[in-house]
């Protein structure tokens, strides 16, 4: 058979392509791959520790995984990446997370 396109080496080219394919198609989770998204924030969630029952629901619901929490500990918000969506404040069963306008 005479084929116009002759790759230098089928196996070599294929393994290079496969590596490139995996790098491009598969997205691995990493911290802040979109940059410091905390700068997007308009309102800042602040936990009023006095009322907090350490239930962890804010940790469970945070869509960006910026709240850290362990059972029987207080949750902690990473403001470098928190976009201020307000979901934590909305789901908090004791209303102890307050959304405060940035700059105030």
């Amino acid at each position: 058979m005479s084929l116009k396109y002759v790759p230098k080496d089928l196996d070599e080219e294929a393994s290079e392509d496969l590596k490139l394919f995996r790098d491009k198609l598969l997205a691995k989770p990493g911290k802040g791959s979109a940059g410091k998204t905390g700068t997007w924030r308009l309102y800042k969630p602040v936990i009023k520790i006095d009322g907090c029952t350490k239930c962890g629901i804010c940790w469970l619901y945070c869509p960006d995984d910026v709240i850290s929490w362990r059972p029987r500990e207080y949750p902690d918000i990473d403001y470098t990446y928190c976009k201020g969506c307000g979901i934590c404040a909305s789901v908090c069963p004791v209303n102890t997370i307050e959304m405060i306008l940035e700059g105030e």
Binding site: M1, L3, Y5, P7, E13, D17, L20, F21
Partner: peptide, 11 residues
Amino acid sequence: LIWRAMYRSKY
């Protein structure tokens, strides 16, 4: 990459 794989598939 699909284009290249298609060509290789002929062989």
